[in-house]
């Protein structure tokens, strides 16, 4: 793992250095790209929050004893996993106005990507909850805990620890998917790159630089999730005491 990280950092440093060294006059692009990156970050963060909420709700609903809830969750997950993210964005952006619902491009981006990643996350949530040992439920019953208390205090905290690594991957997929919002007129990092390319025709430099920025952002996600995993891992007795 550390080797992987070291790799990324080395690669970034190398490419970054190359950029700065070889392409003088590159500075003028930086502000536009930074503004685009900021939009990308905003969409990623907001959609990630929505994804976690949707995944929790759908994952729990899939395990519910109430059949209607299971149905709704299944339909949601199958629709959003079964159609492509771009189709979903276009549907929300171009079709929804036909039903009298006009959302801003930004709202479409956050809702569309959040629900898309949430559908994949629902499977992660369900899997991690089912992976908690049966003995934990039995111990909770023996302590006369109610079902909801058992879920809230015993099962979900353990499931959360198990679901962090797959969530890290999902967040990176989300970051990558934010590039799609450039196709519904949002001026994110990808949009800026496209625009600059049209104006300056310096294809290699611009797209390489933008790819490196995306790489750096996903590195931030990876490192952040690692830190979170270590923290939560500490809750299971690897050192830290409350």
């Amino acid at each position: 793992m550390t080797i992987r990280l070291a790799f990324l950092i080395a690669l970034m440093g190398f490419t970054g250095g190359l950029m700065v060294a070889s392409f003088a006059g590159f500075r003028e692009f930086i502000p536009g790209l930074l503004m685009g990156a900021w939009v990308t970050v905003q969409i990623t963060v907001l959609a990630a929050i929505l994804a976690v909420v949707a995944a929790m709700a759908a994952g729990l609903a899939k395990l519910s004893r109430i059949r209607v809830l299971r149905w709704i969750a299944n339909i949601y997950v199958e629709i959003f996993r079964g159609t492509s993210a771009l189709v979903q964005l276009f549907w929300l952006y171009f079709v929804l106005p036909h039903f009298g619902i006009s959302l801003s491009a930004m709202t479409v981006a956050v809702v569309g990507l959040g629900l898309n990643v949430g559908a994949y996350g629902a499977e992660v949530v369900r899997g991690s909850i089912q992976a908690v040992a049966k003995g934990q439920y039995e111990a909770a019953t023996a302590l006369n805990m109610s079902r909801s208390l058992t879920m809230r205090r015993i099962i979900i905290p353990q499931a959360v620890a198990a679901m962090l690594p797959p969530w890290g991957n999902l967040f990176i997929e989300l970051l990558k998917a934010t590039a799609l919002v450039s196709l519904i007129t949002i001026t994110d990092l990808t949009f800026r790159a496209y625009q600059l390319n049209q104006v300056t025709l310096r294809t290699v430099e611009i797209f390489t630089l933008v790819l490196v920025v995306y790489l750096a952002l996903s590195l931030v996600i990876t490192i952040g999730m690692r830190a979170l995993e270590r923290r939560v891992g500490a809750d299971f007795g690897t050192g830290r005491v409350l």
Partner: peptide
Amino acid sequence: FNLFPHMT
């Protein structure tokens, strides 16, 4: 045992 692993 079935202790809760996330609690002291």
